[in-house]
Design a protein around this nucleic acid. Structure first.
Lengths: 238, 238
DNA sequence: ACCTGAACACCGTTCAAGT
DNA sequence: ACCTGAACACCGTTCAAGT
């Protein structure tokens, strides 16, 4: 009759006695597999095998695979504040930019987070701490009320969207090398250039570019635009 | 020896003779299932059953489930330009905002796109047409070269990120009603408020708010910030 | 309390064989 | 050319039974 709790975070880990496993261990293993092989490589059976155990036993520690993903997500979210260092910065712009950069770096290390996170509410302790840090910076800058939420959301949105685009681009680049690829693509690209002149020019230009540097440039460009807009709306003025 | 083509779009549909199915039909069915039940509800066997056919026969039209998702993604991307109307707008800001609003509306209708799209390069005709439209607006506003790319990317990033956050919030709201939920959550929320004062205040305030309206407010807030920043960087000046 | 082993109800994909 | 039917190698999850 009673439905299960909607989130892992509302239900503490069970008390221990003579366990061979732990949530920490299972989550760590899951993150390692996700990093190495992406979401498609992760299965309960695979994790169990890696830990020298049967698949069924994992369900003693975790009620569902989905719940395990929630835990994995919060695990890597913890890296952002850990490495950014919570030391105070010169100004709110710099502090916010540092937070955003750390967030981006984490997402690039763990690209599976992007699809994992989509549509999933996120109440883990590390997610909360990260939000609090962002709110603290923006509150210090003078934002309050609904604008405080919206300002933080805008920055987070940019980070998320930018990394999503970035990983797509990177994915497109790999496997570009093969001869047959070039041949099959050439005709398609000619049609694209004919029907979409602006896009054609931009794609031609994209061929020569260093993806790494260009992604960073775009990230900074969008973030600067956003921060300019925030600065203009800052209650404190100037 | 020869690897399969990296994308559906580089390989045209096979010539027909006496088919009972078509790509259009299959993709349409897939989109309907995804809209109704999300990514977890979609299986090749399910689509086949819906079309009165065996699972294996789908592979005559589509080489892989992943490829089918690529097709589904471009299908719904087509809705954006179709409904936004390509009629010219008063200014570049309004035109860009209209495009972004249409994009957001489509993503809200088909939330599965967010996880589908993550990390997947996207060369479908509708994706290309949508990019061209965005580039045309920004080129008309005076942007060129790498800044043109970065400006469009910034707007798209905001749309993507904002809708991702929005769907998470909506998901968290559903199932909030149950009595046990309230009870279990209360204790956790008290701890959150204690450890994260700013966040605690914002969460308390979020309880009273109309999610629909607040999401639109945040979307507009972030977009306006961005457009302000773009305006300041516009080569044409003023 | 914790784990095994086996089972249930699914998957995506392949491929002979039919028409 | 197009589709069926059956198979292969997987899934997540449950649950009696062991220790």
């Amino acid at each position: 009759m009673t439905a299960p709790s909607p989130s892992v975070w509302l239900r503490p880990e069970r008390p221990a006695r003579d366990r061979r496993l732990s949530r920490r261990q299972i989550v760590g293993c899951a993150v390692a597999i996700l990093d190495a092989e992406g979401g498609k490589g992760l299965s309960m059976r695979r994790i169990a095998a890696e830990l020298g155990v049967t698949a069924g036993s994992l369900y003693w520690y975790v009620t569902t695979k989905d719940e395990l993903l929630e835990l994995a997500l919060d695990e890597v979210l913890g890296e952002v504040l850990a490495e950014a260092g919570s030391g105070p910065r010169d100004g709110w712009r710099e502090a916010l930019a540092a937070l955003a950069a750390g967030h981006r770096a984490m997402l690039l290390r763990h690209p599976w987070v992007l699809s994992d996170l989509a549509g999933r509410p996120n109440l883990g302790p590390n997610a909360l701490a990260l939000s609090e840090a962002g709110l603290a910076v923006l509150a210090g800058a003078g934002f309050a009320g609904a604008d405080l939420d919206a300002a933080l959301a805008a920055v987070n949105d940019h980070v998320l969207g930018a990394v999503a685009a970035e990983t797509s681009w990177r994915a497109a680049r790999t496997g570009e090398g093969t001869a047959e690829w070039a041949e099959e693509t050439a005709a398609y690209m000619r049609r694209v250039a004919r029907d979409h002149p602006l896009l054609g020019r931009r794609m031609a230009a994209a061929g020569d570019v260093d993806v790494e540097r260009e992604c960073e440039r775009r990230f900074a460009f969008g973030l600067d635009c956003l921060l300019d807009g925030l600065a203009a709306r800052r209650p404190g003025g100037a």
